[in-house]
């Protein structure tokens, strides 16, 4: 079973993603703030993919992505950035540090398709 990390501070989004992706057969782990997300990255869980919102309380999404890329255990793990902001250089991680970008409000079906493409 593929493991997915979902980082977002929006309770409804986290809840819906969890519900939707679980039904598709994924093991979903969630983090609603930066500290929790970092703890997940540091944990032993071998994630296959991460969905990261850039604006979350505490440590920013950009920093979390940076941390993931420095973690050898998660080397090559695809990252999908989800954001409610327009693309700007300040808050955004370097382009080569993530695989795709979805702007809210996205379609769960589109995300799923991308997850399937990236994790195969």
């Amino acid at each position: 079973m593929k493991r997915i990390l979902v980082v977002d501070d929006e309770p409804s989004i986290v809840m819906i993603m969890e519900e939707f992706l679980s039904e598709e057969g994924y093991e979903v782990h969630t983090a609603m703030d930066g500290d929790k997300a970092l703890a997940m990255v540091d944990s032993e869980i071998p994630f296959d993919l991460a969905l990261v919102d850039l604006r979350i309380p505490g440590v920013s999404g950009k920093e979390i992505i940076h941390k993931i890329r420095q973690t050898s255990r998660l080397e090559g793990m695809p990252i999908i950035v989800i954001t409610g902001f327009e693309k700007n250089s300040e808050d955004f991680p370097p382009e080569n540090s993530y695989q795709s970008l979805f702007t809210k409000p996205f379609m769960l079906e589109d995300i799923l398709e991308e997850i399937q493409r990236l994790s195969n």
Partner: peptide, 24 residues
Amino acid sequence: IQLCAHELRNPMTGIRGIFSLVRK
């Protein structure tokens, strides 16, 4: 304005997600 857009997108994402779940 950017913040407004961001704040509006979150509930909309939720609503869209719910549509997907219900449809399924």
